[in-house]
Design a protein around this nucleic acid. Structure first.
Lengths: 358, 358
DNA sequence: CTGAAAGCGCTTACAG
DNA sequence: CTGAAAGCGCTTACAG
């Protein structure tokens, strides 16, 4: 006789809970598999010291009962939770969301969850705040994108608390096992080659704040690649911005009001590129006819502004995934330093904002 | 004699840990305060059944030892974790990040943490996935912005699992205690009044997908307010888009290729507004001279495109905060339905994309 | 290779 | 108003 649908789902005879309605525990599994809970624990934790058929019996019971170990109980016993913290101060929503997504890609199926922790690097309570967060939650590990990844006070704290971490940055700041290095240098170099190939010789550069590593690295890559093409960068055409739209507007006016203004401008992020475009427009220039602009980041906005902005794209989501994989490596018996991960390769997305010099 | 800085921080005599280096536990507090751990527990959980001076002794000991209860241990005993889940499928990074920030604003100091859980509403495994997430983590509660908040399958699941939740939506879908209603209706009405005041009579409307509540609500608010001003909306000028840039481009071409095209277009989100602008430009129109455009969302992009886009802004961060406060209310002995929360008021941010009809 | 005991740091259920 | 015992669901440390 076929079993009809349960009308009272809370009175169930399905094998998931010995006592209906409650989740199966390690004790239920032990009873069904006729072993001690310690042996079940060994199977959960993939101990090699379990005989083949014992393991099979336990695995069968686990499947039958739909058992999943309780992370809180496990965490309490392990003195370490199953939570990964993402600590960041990056103001770009697109960056943050892509990074979160990448970390989640890697965490999927691992039983770990992602706890987000945005913060302000200039806050006086930053360190105490992070200390409280990590100590209280006994985090499994922490991932930090720039510019948090560049804060050595936080790194010292993490080491003191013995909390595993992976840093994402444009230069190698740590041992390979706890670093994902993003090739910003190469990305800026591609932008330089593009502008040189288009025949530009008077080229402006709008950098970011000097204390951001990315600014130094991107600026360096741009300058070097330009020099290789025999197009030296005129220092007068270099301006330090703040990585904001407004600072881009300002830098744009400064560059375009020069007696012999640049015919192309590379900005070290998209917000400033769009600021430069705004300045050009305010000065009555037509784009891209009177000025080529290239940005960095490839924000969604880049393909929406008019003319569509040529920009350097970094695989943010992949970077997040790679960082999380390094964090998980020890759990999987792997060496994070030797993980077979592809290099982070930036790519230049060519659109409509850059044209040949006239 | 002044104590010099510790050279060996792991051998410390600071009072934080009875045994140096280890965090203080409830037992340490009980010993110092000369009470049972149960009494300490009562103080932590704000039980009213503790005598005044006993409470003070315990609180002093807690402060002295820098004690914070371990959320994992507490969670295990409570059968409920101290994690709030944010479950969403919203594709806008700005929306997501602002919402997260608002939730975190409210969570600050509560000891709760935010676990993010983006998902795909069309996935076949959606329900099983969410079930696993909630059961495994024994979430304290869940917050769902649109369109997740509109999925009744998930709501049924949440009820079955007895997991508290708060929904954010443009209409009231639930009891007041578990709803934050965003006044999209009013926002769209303001846009309508603005265009009517500018003298436009041939007005286009680009809606979102019909199954999004926000599209129905915003569309309704726009239509009604327009009618009140005596400017009925020509049904031929209404088009359903997909809330994407591309669908905005398409809708823009459709509307602008009509024999007697609209002089103003309202789109129910910014991505489509910018798409309409792109279409206008592709057709050789000059903006805003030949076409006024108003959007909804006020993305960062809105103030970057040229001409700067007039748009309806919703206080996303406040909405996230309010939702989290409702979730926390019971913990604070409050009734979430009677929380003294300000109404969610949209505002029209007027910029440069809308001008008087000629 | 397997298990019985004790413990992780809290709370519930029960007494008094 | 307060506390001793048992328990939440796991793991560690120790035996065998």
């Amino acid at each position: 006789m076929a079993k009809h649908d349960n009308e009272e789902p809370w009175v169930t005879d399905d094998p998931r809970g010995a006592k209906s309605g409650k989740r199966a525990t390690i004790n239920d599994v032990a009873r069904v598999a006729r072993v001690s809970k310690k042996t079940v624990s060994r199977v959960i934790n993939q101990s090699p010291f379990v005989k083949g058929d014992t393991r099979e019996r336990v695995e069968k019971a686990i499947a039958e009962l739909g058992f999943t170990p309780d992370p809180q109980a496990r965490g309490l016993a392990f003195r370490r939770s199953f939570l990964v913290g993402l600590i960041y101060d990056n103001p770009s929503p697109t960056y943050v969301v892509n990074m979160q997504q990448g970390v989640l890609d890697a965490l999927k199926g691992s039983g770990l969850e992602l706890v987000v922790h945005p913060c302000n690097r200039n806050s006086e309570t930053l360190i105490d705040d992070i200390r409280g967060f990590i100590e209280r939650q006994r985090l499994f590990g922490v991932i930090m994108p720039p510019s948090m990844s560049e804060d050595e006070r936080v790194i010292a704290l993490l080491r003191e608390l013995d909390c595993p971490y992976v840093r994402i940055a444009s230069v190698s700041l740590d041992e390979p096992g706890s670093m994902v290095v993003t090739n910003d240098h190469l990305g800026a170099a591609e932008a330089a080659r593009r502008l040189a190939d288009l025949g530009h010789t008077r080229i402006g550069l709008v950098r970011g704040p000097a204390l951001f590593r990315s600014s130094t690295v991107r600026g360096g890559g741009f300058r070097e690649a330009l020099a290789e093409r025999g197009v030296p960068l005129n220092p007068d055409y270099e301006i330090e911005g703040a990585y904001t739209f407004e600072s881009g507007v300002e830098a744009g006016h400064a560059l375009l009001s020069m007696p012999n203004p640049p015919t192309a401008i590379f900005t070290l992020n998209d917000d400033m590129a769009i600021g430069v475009m705004q300045a050009a427009r305010e000065r009555g220039l037509e784009l891209p006819r009177d000025l080529s602009v290239v940005g960095f980041d490839d924000l969604p906005m880049a393909s929406r502004v008019w003319p569509n902005l040529t920009s350097v794209r970094l695989p943010i989501r992949d970077m997040g995934r790679m960082a999380a994989e390094k964090l998980l490596a020890p759990m999987r018996g792997l060496d994070p330093a030797k993980l077979d991960q592809p290099e982070v390769r930036p790519s230049l997305v060519v659109r409509k904002s850059d044209i040949p010099a006239t």
